[in-house]
Amino acid sequence: MSDPVLLINVILLMIAVGAAIAAMWTRDLLGAVMLMGIYSLLLAVEWANLFAMDVSYTEAAVGAGAATILLLTALTRTGTREKAGPNFHPTALLTVIVTGAMLIYGTADMPRFGDPQAPATVNVAPEYIAQNVGKVDAGEDGPENDFGDHVPNAVTAVLASYRGYDTMFETAVIFTAGVCVILILRPLSPSARRETAQSQEGA
């Protein structure tokens, strides 16, 4: 425990696991949503600690921000107490244990954390870091530019240029999700509303 960064990482992960367990345990759904927000925020700090700034941003904005707000909005419609029932589900526990065991078994083959000889760091990563990806060859006597022929953030260079198709279809997927929400939760048309009212009166 001489490494302070490692110590901070371990403490953060322990609090995150604690928050996750508490979120499962509590019967107060409002508290559970808040605990999940805390869990996401802690993970965001953890990502920042591992120098994954873009992932950290996304985790903080989506996990701690948007997802929490969506769940809270849903809670205003459902009520904040969980239905009484058994707190222990053997099938769920078994599924989680089996999946977890498989994941841990899978990590056994993975290289050590920060290993300079890991396949991920020797094959394509140098290309990304040298920023040859998304680099534009302006030629020998090409015009000067501010960026030295590449975009400074390697992550954006990969996402927006090298994998432009990928990001385009991701955007299309998000758009489709928005359209689906509009179609499913749209207000009823006046005639449909009248029919619903009539059927309720009849029943």
């Binding site: 849903a74 385009m168 991701e170 758009f175 509009i182």
Partner: peptide, 24 residues
């Protein structure tokens, strides 16, 4: 391209929250 992504993401998330919040 990023401006396109930003526009779509912002409006989809806003739409989701508004619809779940019960405009209807």
């Amino acid at each position: 391209v990023e401006a396109g992504v930003g526009l779509t993401v912002a409006s989809v998330i806003l739409t989701m929250v508004r619809k779940v919040n019960g405009e209807s």
